[in-house]
Amino acid sequence: MNRAENRRGCGRDDGRRPPPGTNYLFDDIRKRNRGLKLFNTVRGCFRTLNFTNIFEGFKGYHRRGWSTMTQCVECGADLTLHADLEVGEIVDCTTCGAELEVIDVEPPVLEKAPELEEDWGE
């Protein structure tokens, strides 16, 4: 197996585990800290990590380690979401075919995706 196949075959879409080295945990913490940091700077103190952050981070990692279920906002059918869901991604409802945009991943929130526009493309 060549390198490309190897990389691509490492569980991206098998709904079980995120690709090796995918550091969702710290990505999530960094995101939360952005808000925190600002808030704390205003109050004159500085705190970068707290237990909630760490806990939330682990929870996110754990949840994303396995596929999640949600409902289609168009037809209400159950929808299985793959493991490495990404905000901004489009998923298709297997029941009604609707294109759904991932608005949030924790927990997953879907919305009907905007229609294709004429100036879209490469």
């Binding site: 991206r12 690709p19 080295g21 995918t22 550091n23 990505d27 490495d84 990404e86 905000v87 901004g88 991604e89 489009i90 945009e101 991932v102 995706a113």
Partner: peptide, 14 residues
């Protein structure tokens, strides 16, 4: 919109 292309990039960068 995160297409498969962007996802490939995101994964590689991370």
């Amino acid at each position: 919109r995160i297409r498969r292309d962007e996802k490939l990039l995101l994964n590689e960068l991370r």
